[in-house]
Nucleic acid binder design. Structure first.
Lengths: 197, 197
DNA sequence: TTATTATTTTAGCAATCGCTAAAATTGGAG
DNA sequence: CTCCAATTTTAGCGATTGCTAAAATAATAA
């Protein structure tokens, strides 16, 4: 079902799999997870969505937990590099705020939070990347403030958490069709960022 | 397995169930959900935890969705009345902030968010109570500001969302053993509230 | 070509799921 | 006590789950 051109001639032996199908499976898993929740990501439904039979999932991932960990890892790597690039190109606070209230990110993150709440391996990879992500945000804010010679009333690490938390909630609520205070907090954050940095 | 004294003599007929077992089931469901995630709340595991056989769950709740809705409703009613009382007794901002970053509430809420993301009935009851909850918070803040004659730089509805979002994230992260920026944001919020209100 | 290896599918096991029917139990009403 | 209704359990159906063994397929090396 999946056509692929071999990467290149090489010695036979164990390991070394073609990445195409693996990525296809992760794509299907991500879509399924965001659309219907992590409980819908079963080997059979996943295979169905990817146009593949279910045992193939276990050929690429030792267990469903391994698949979830791999999925989070891939998403986190993408988020990290995409944030790093956006921070270099655009306004720091505006970038952080936009990325924080991204509704798709919020849903993905929440599903994994719920998953990580009772699966140790998932929780571990989440903590690992969360720290890296926060570090990136923090360094960007601190560098920006120093560069501009600003001394805002709120510390850089507090600002990062405040923006992340507020944006996260906004992203989730908007997915549920809730909008109370969203316009106001939008203006407040924008004003705060413009004033402080 | 459950001893109960009948509420009072009344005519025979349909409906009208004794609340004791029902509450027992909801208690077990809440504990199971927070400890192991919503996917662990199955009729068999729930019965096991409550010391009851699984078909009894379906005697009290037509479906598992109905059980989740009932659980959320009960929790929301309790939260509403507990917040209303706390707002009358203590400092408004301090109360909102303390209740927002409650880790147990955050986990409960997150599990339901994940659940509501793909179950219509659950999402509906969540939206219903979220609006009521926000309304209570908003009225308290607005009343407090008017009473004190204060005119803070942030609008009341924005302040409510900001506190709720930041507290929510802090509650979740602390559950995962993450603490980056928590101390700073704690100080920042406290200072903001003290200055603004 | 043939042989070898990587990839994918077919078939299926043991466990669990939501839910139902029907029987057993309990306890108050008369 | 008897009767009746509310509650709880036993037994089980059909569906789905994670995962495995083994066979089939496809692609490359020699």
């Amino acid at each position: 079902m999946v056509k692929k051109t071999r990467a290149g001639g090489r010695k036979n032996g164990a390991g070394q799999r073609t990445p195409a199908t693996r990525d296809l499976l992760l794509n299907a898993a991500e879509a399924l997870m965001c659309d219907e929740g992590y409980a819908a990501v079963t080997s059979r439904r996943l295979g169905e969505k990817a146009g593949v039979t279910s045992p193939l999932i276990h050929y690429y991932f030792a267990s469903m937990d391994d698949l979830f960990v791999a999925l989070y890892r891939r998403h986190a790597e993408q988020s990290l590099s995409s944030l790093a690039q956006a921070l270099q190109e655009g306004d720091v606070f505006e970038t952080l705020w936009r990325q924080s209230r991204n509704s798709d990110n919020a849903v993905f993150f929440m599903e994994f939070m719920a998953l990580g709440n009772h699966r140790k391996a998932v929780r571990a990879v989440m903590v690992e990347y969360a720290q890296e992500y926060r570090r990136l945000q923090y360094d960007a804010v601190r560098g920006y403030l120093k560069e501009q010679g600003l001394q805002p009333g709120i510390s850089p690490d507090a600002a990062v958490v405040l923006i992340a938390g507020t944006g996260f909630l906004l992203g989730l609520e908007s997915r549920f069709g809730m909008s109370f205070g969203h316009q106001s907090v939008e203006e407040a954050i924008t004003r705060l960022c413009a004033k402080d940095g």
